[in-house]
């Protein structure tokens, strides 16, 4: 598996750490309520198909990357820096 780091270019999967769905970028306000926080921390869309998830270029530049990816075919459709994807 190969992933293109926006900084470093295409690299082997071994350089990356996987965290989970990119929903982790959408942190609710502290008072958003139980449901919002349950949705953020625990519940997942878990799609069989295109998903956006978070990878960390641990063995490289240290960038957190949002990877748009197909969970059925493992095709990588898009990668972008988490710091830019959010805004």
């Amino acid at each position: 598996m190969r992933i293109t780091c926006p900084h470093c270019g295409e690299r082997d999967r071994r350089e990356f750490y996987y965290r989970g769905a990119a929903v982790d970028l959408e942190r609710p306000a502290p008072d958003a309520g139980e449901e919002a926080w349950d949705n953020f921390v625990y519940l997942r869309d878990n799609p069989a198909g295109v998903t956006r998830d978070l990878w960390y270029h641990e063995g490289g530049c240290g960038a957190w990357i949002v990877v748009t990816r197909d969970t059925v075919t493992h095709e990588v459709l898009k990668t972008e820096l988490a710091s830019e994807a959010k805004s």
Binding site: L54, Y56, E58, W64, A82, S83
Partner: peptide
């Protein structure tokens, strides 16, 4: 290692 990843995540992902 875990803390380093965490700091980078909180920074880049939550408060860039």
């Amino acid at each position: 290692g875990e803390v380093m990843k965490h700091l980078e995540f909180v920074h880049q992902g939550l408060c860039p």
